[in-house]
């Protein structure tokens, strides 16, 4: 008879060896410094808490991005997704945005989501670039499958890089025809889209060791920018 532990092992996808993402520091337009680092499985609860208020924000497709990202982070926490990783951007230790994805196999990656909390500073652009950097430069993959759920995402990824069509492949995010970032596309785009400094000094890393969240109202205001309607 199989034990609970044996059954759990059957429910979990097999895991590949994944290299760590080396943290980097990025100076933003505001002059603030954002530390980009990998988030551990143990940090998923606080990230889930950060995303929760956005589940009902329709503006700019935050609801669908937040809902899917919530399930992906939960699946990562509970070992129900194969070879996922999560990167976070922290300004003074406060969460500014996060990205995630997974490795399909040794050579192909799949981008999941990019969610920006602190808008207007190209945080999402920096974090998406960090994600591509992880797949191509650190995992040594040849390509990353990508889709966009919002027009903003389409402009940022498909047009700005620009990505190639790989529409014969259905992306895991709803079976939408995939686009692909190849190693060449990445290297061509790198000078204008990928930035950051390494190594990050120990004291700065220490300041980003614990993820802190902005208040829920702050998150909603930063995400929706809904202030023009108030006299």
């Amino acid at each position: 008879m199989a034990s609970v532990t044996d059954l759990e092992a059957l429910l979990r996808p097999p895991a590949m060896e994944m290299p760590p993402y080396p943290p980097k520091a990025i100076t933003l337009a505001s002059g603030e410094e954002m530390i980009v680092r990998q988030a551990s499985r143990e940090e998923m609860p606080i990230l889930l808490k950060a995303i929760y208020p956005l589940l009902l924000v329709e503006r700019d497709y935050y609801d669908i991005v937040a809902a899917r990202l919530y399930s992906e982070l939960l699946a990562y926490k509970r070992y129900r997704v194969k070879d996922e990783y999560v990167l976070v951007g922290l300004i003074d230790g406060v969460l500014a945005g996060l990205v995630n994805g997974r490795l399909v196999d040794a050579k192909v990656g799949m981008s999941y989501h990019t969610l920006t909390i602190r808008r207007g500073l190209r945080v999402g652009s920096h974090l998406f670039a960090a994600k591509m950097e992880y797949h191509i430069e650190h995992c040594g993959q040849d390509e990353v499958l990508i889709v966009a759920e919002s027009p903003i995402g389409f402009r940022r990824w498909m047009i700005e890089y620009p990505l190639d069509k790989k529409h014969e492949v259905q992306h895991e995010l709803g079976g939408v025809p995939s686009w692909v970032l190849t190693r060449k596309t990445y290297l061509d785009a790198k000078p204008r889209l990928v930035s950051g400094r390494r190594p990050v000094p120990a004291e700065k890393l220490a300041g980003a060791a614990v993820i802190r969240l902005p208040g829920e109202d702050t998150v909603r205001l930063q995400v929706t920018g809904e202030k023009g309607g108030k006299a």
């Binding site: 337009a29 190209r122 889209l193 990928v194």
Partner: peptide
């Protein structure tokens, strides 16, 4: 005001990251 976000010379012009920050 619409934008309550200071910007700096480093952030939008002189840092290596300014290329990304200020396309």
């Amino acid at each position: 005001a619409h934008i309550h976000q200071p910007v700096t010379m480093e952030g939008i012009l002189t840092s290596p990251e300014a290329v990304v920050n200020n396309p």
